[in-house]
Amino acid sequence: MQNPVAAVPSETDTLSKSAAGRTLPLVQEQRNEPMPLDLDWVRAAAANTSAIERRAATLPGRRSVKKDHQAAWLLRAITLIDLTTLSGDDTEGRVKRLCAKALNPVRKDLLDALGMGPITTGAVCVYHDMVPTAVAAVAGRLPVAAVSTGFPAGLSPFHLRLAEIEESVKAGAKEIDIVISRRHVLTGNWQALYDEMLAFRATCGEAHVKAILATGELGALRNVVRASLVCMMAGADFIKTSTGKESVNATLPVSLVMIRAIRAYHEATGIRVGYKPAGGISRAKDALTYLAMMKDELGDRWLKPDLFRFGASSLLGDIERQLEHHVTGRYSASYRHGMA
């Protein structure tokens, strides 16, 4: 397993080699360089809500992953988690604990029983002030993602939003989760959205940028697909559903719309953009559904951490319990697993 998003880690390569017991060909994705805003494409994009909801509703029933396959898929899901803490009461101690869990997400006896070497989550995700602590704690073994640009509302002065990105990158964040200005979407000002995203992307430099659309505030799936396309045209490396702070966060219908936009973008440009659903995914079963959706709608290539992440905090706990159940045949309890 390689991890090009973070553009670091020979460590991660080593890690996944040992985890898998064999090597994978290293795939280095071409980064999504901005393209000119194509308004014809944006405005022609359609998203039929009821049809999308029907597809989403049948997904969990269409795909079932059992026994060893389920365990393996859940382990994979762990490696895709951006283990996250984004609270006003975050402290250094709390963030260190989070990082420790991210580096050691599953009890060793369980991994041994499953024949797996050590794994980590995909990244940790924190506010800017916690970036140095996190960077130090993960010691280069994981990328640190920082939410930025006036997260979650994105309404602080524009120059300060850019400055915030600069600061986080300077502090060692390898991934920047920016929030877009929802008002540009709601008023159909695609040019403004494009310009904003372009500026964020440029400011991120080598750090990869995830564009948070805050889909729960965009009013319509049609807006979600159009905002997704505009952000990709402006160079987003990932598009991400939500901050986790909106009243509605990641849902299957929204995810379908966004990953179909990613698919269309790939068809048109050959570039693979990543996807991160965030907020509201807390059950192992949900994670399996998301993985199946990515596999069926986009393909296996999008089941790797450089192209897919879960923004989640409580998901890991449920997966750990399921893994223990798989190993022992008995249902588990949360206190049997180390907390973040």
Binding site: R22, L24, D68, H69, A72, L75, R76, G115, M116, K295
Partner: peptide, 16 residues
Amino acid sequence: MNVPEIFETMEYGPAP
């Protein structure tokens, strides 16, 4: 296939 192999291939298994 064992778990580490499936972890790599991410194939669907039987679900009878």
